[in-house]
Amino acid sequence: MKVVVKGNIACPASVVWGRVVAFGGIAQWHPLISRSIQENAPGPGGGVVRSLTTYDGAAIREELTACDPESRRLSYTFLASPFPVAHYCATMEVSETGPTSCQVTWTATFEPSDPADGPRLRDLFADEVFRTGIEALKPAGVRLESSTAP
């Protein structure tokens, strides 16, 4: 399954990218994350690992799999999560749309453990995780568009 959420933000791309690229600091801007810690040891793929705790107490570990500051794009995967998915891979990209505006695109692909659960998980990631996170990057001036694909 694939999830894509886009948000237009009235804020320079460099400012928004600075928040996104601070991989271990997601709790500073994402309202669903109460705690985030960047681990000292690299993950299985050699990337930076962050340990997250959500406000409802769920634990998530994610590994940074790619980071391209020039294109303002990073990708990460789940090492552990409460979500019943496999092969989860997400990408965040910040594109300049003007000197004081940008667009954030947050995309994920995954396989639900139970195919019947796919639509619920797709909507959960799109609405509760990605859309909420993009809105929190700059609360004022956000217009969101989303699309989903099987």
Rank of each mutant, 00 (worst) to 15 (best):
N8S: 15
N8A: 13
N8C: 06
I9V: 15
A10G: 03
A10Q: 15
P12F: 12
A13C: 11
A13G: 13
V15M: 13
V16L: 02
V16I: 15
G18N: 15
R19Q: 15
R19S: 12
R19C: 01
V20P: 00
V20Q: 01
V20W: 00
V21K: 15
V21H: 10
V21I: 06
A22L: 08
F23S: 11
F23I: 07
G24W: 11
G24H: 11
G24A: 12
G25A: 15
G25M: 14
G25V: 04
I26D: 12
I26S: 08
I26E: 10
A27R: 07
A27L: 13
Q28H: 10
Q28K: 14
Q28A: 15
W29M: 07
W29L: 06
H30L: 06
H30F: 08
P31G: 08
P31W: 09
P31H: 07
L32C: 03
I33C: 15
I33A: 06
S34R: 14
R35H: 13
R35C: 11
R35Y: 03
R35L: 14
S36F: 04
S36L: 04
I37F: 09
I37Q: 15
Q38Y: 03
E39R: 14
N40L: 12
A41L: 09
P42V: 02
G43M: 07
G43H: 06
P44T: 06
P44N: 04
G45Q: 14
G45F: 08
G46D: 07
G47L: 03
G47Q: 04
G47K: 02
V48A: 12
V48G: 00
V48K: 05
R50H: 04
S51P: 04
L52F: 07
L52W: 03
T54W: 01
Y55M: 04
D56Y: 00
D56I: 03
D56K: 02
D56C: 01
G57H: 05
G57V: 04
G57N: 11
G57M: 02
A58H: 06
A59S: 09
A59R: 04
A59N: 00
I60T: 09
I60S: 09
R61G: 02
R61Y: 07
R61Q: 15
E62N: 05
E62I: 03
E63W: 07
E63L: 03
L64T: 03
L64F: 03
L64R: 05
L64V: 01
L64S: 01
T65G: 10
T65H: 05
T65E: 11
A66E: 14
A66P: 06
A66R: 09
C67M: 12
P69N: 05
P69A: 02
P69D: 12
P69F: 10
E70G: 01
R72T: 00
R73L: 10
R73I: 01
